[in-house]
Nucleic acid binder design. Structure first.
Ligand SMILES: [Mn+2]
Ligand SMILES: [Mn+2]
Ligand SMILES: [Mn+2]
Ligand SMILES: [Mn+2]
Lengths: 226, 226
DNA sequence: AATAAAATTTAGTTATGCCTAAATTATTCT
DNA sequence: AGAATAATTTAGGCATAACTAAATTTTATT
């Protein structure tokens, strides 16, 4: 009874799609090696898999030797499906089971591949169809469109600019805990106080705290300017 | 960082363990063919898998050619782990997402293999450590002991005996919906009115309804006599 | 343009977990 | 007991998805 258009994809393929989406969405090239690093799989294994995904019945990716892959319409839809599951699950785990934002990623990573569309609809409805996950990342809509993100990386701001943290693009537990301890969470008001050239450090005021942040961090925090 | 005692078992092996537990718990012999039928896997495949499970590092089953398998202490623990996940999940899906008792089984069947111990603890705590799932089946305790079920199959009762439905051992959606429509759900008070020998039908009064039930059904409904 | 370095692909293996067909063993019937 | 039947196991394959080592192609450097 499963629709022919949405033949069930293996967990591996779902993971490939998700990571290809993330790479290409950031403007990066989804090359074999980039994917291999991201998926923590050897490059030859990735080559084999992308070849398979390219020659699947409805192709999931377009693939040119030595050029990396791009998602087809089918592949993009499937990727957004997985990402929607992941982000809804993260929101659900925080809202109903008291997970903290640094604990949800790993759990969602496993659940995203096995929940039914019914489960997806139920948690979305129970939460009132949230727009963002606990890290502030946009949740693809039920019809699998990715809303447009209008925030800018903190790393692009300069002294006297102010704004609200919209989203933190990170999954690492340690980093997330550190950011939380500094008050760097979605919704927080910030003001850029200083900029050091060469090392690109930013001195940022959050609440009554002032902290110096390196590019490693400022590139992952997205701000809606005010 | 995963404890050596609880090396992660594959989803297939978890399913084998669960089905072996269910067969042996009901006093049935967990023969190759019985398992093959229950798991909907060919008999040769089952032979291969039980051989593997028997020669695993801490053996999960004891296996004698042509004699079927029994669980080792390790295997039993692992089976109860999966069953605890399944039943807690069913309860959770009903209590927090409004699933009906006939919808939960399939979803729990997939989730049971991927939730973390942390997730398990959180849903158990959130529900106040429930003793039974939505079908009334006992949930193994956190330290993986199966509580003792003292109810008896409805099929063993005779006219004038009364009791409360404790549990319905069924997963089939159609059957569960039918039983619900008759009020045959855990907690319902029933009275046996008539017994037809040879076909073993029972005429049962539930609330103000009276129904005739065949062995197929009465053997799956468990009663606490009163 | 030639060479060195990096990225990518091909070739050949491995582990899981399933399958069918054929052989074997156990059980039941005459 | 001997034959028929049923249950079980062995043998040989296949699909998926990983791996390493070696070959190839592309890109960067001199
Ligand atoms: Mn995440
Ligand atoms: Mn979905
Ligand atoms: Mn169930
Ligand atoms: Mn558990």
């Amino acid at each position: 009874m499963k629709p022919l258009t949405q033949k069930t994809l293996t967990i591996s393929i779902q993971d490939y799609l998700k990571h290809i989406y993330e790479l290409t969405e950031n403007g990066e090239n989804a090359s074999t090696n980039a994917l291999a690093r991201k998926l923590r799989i050897s490059a030859p294994s990735v080559t084999g898999m992308v070849q398979k995904m390219a020659s699947a019945k409805p192709a999931l990716v377009e693939y040119q030797k030595h050029q990396g892959v791009t998602l087809t319409k089918e592949g993009r839809r499937a990727a957004l499906e997985v990402i929607r599951h992941h982000r809804l699950l993260e929101a659900w785990l925080v809202q109903t089971l008291g997970y903290s934002w640094d604990e949800v990623h790993e759990e969602a990573e496993r659940l995203e591949h096995v929940i039914s569309e019914d489960f997806e609809r139920r948690i979305a409805a129970a939460m009132g169809h949230p727009l963002r996950d606990p890290h502030g990342e946009l949740i693809p809509t039920a019809d699998l469109k990715m809303p447009i993100e209008d925030s800018t990386p903190l790393s692009a701001l300069r002294p006297t600019q102010t704004g609200t943290i919209q989203c933190v693009k990170a999954a690492d537990t340690g980093l997330l805990r550190y950011l939380e301890s500094l008050g760097l969470v979605p919704g927080a008001q910030i003001e850029v106080k200083e900029y050091s050239p060469f090392d690109h450090n930013l001195t940022v005021k959050v609440g009554r705290k002032t902290t110096v942040l390196g590019m490693n961090i400022t590139s992952k925090i997205y701000i809606e300017e005010s």
